[in-house]
């Protein structure tokens, strides 16, 4: 079986991670911020899969399952908060959240 060189997989994961980070920094809509976070987390998951494949261990895949569960939990809370923000402030723009400041 011709395996993919883990360096390429890690490179792809790195590109996805940076894209997700840029998304968090650039997008102002709460839903897109949450989606960008999801991309970052899954990029880390992909990197774990590549690393696990490199060493022929199951650890990478185990970590990926953990990451899936954690991403689901995080996004569930995130969407619940987005709903409450929408109801209370009538907006989904993160820039409108500025009640807390000096």
């Amino acid at each position: 079986m011709s395996a993919v060189d883990p360096v390429y997989a890690l490179g792809l994961a790195g590109v996805l991670f940076v894209l997700g980070l840029l998304g968090v920094l650039v997008r102002r809509n709460i839903i897109f911020v949450l989606a960008s976070i999801e991309i970052m987390v899954n990029a880390a998951g992909l990197a774990f899969l590549a690393a696990g494949a490199r060493w022929g261990q199951a650890d990478g895949q185990v970590m990926f399952v953990f990451i899936l569960a954690m991403a689901a939990a995080e996004v569930a809370v995130g969407l619940a908060l987005a709903l409450r923000i929408r109801r209370r402030f009538n907006t989904l723009d993160v820039d409108d959240l500025r009640k807390l400041k000096d």
Binding site: P6, L10, A13, G14, F17, G20, L21, V24, I30, V33, I37, M40, V41, A43, A44, G45, A47, F48, A50, A51, G52, R54, W55, D59, G60, M63, I67, M70, E74, V77, G78, L81, A82, I85, V94, L97, L100
Partner: peptide, 24 residues
Amino acid sequence: AFKYLVLAAVTSAMLLFGMALVYA
């Protein structure tokens, strides 16, 4: 809570990616 969630999730992703790199 939302500010904490976004920043904590982003840094968790960083932590995970860092762990993956070290493991790789």
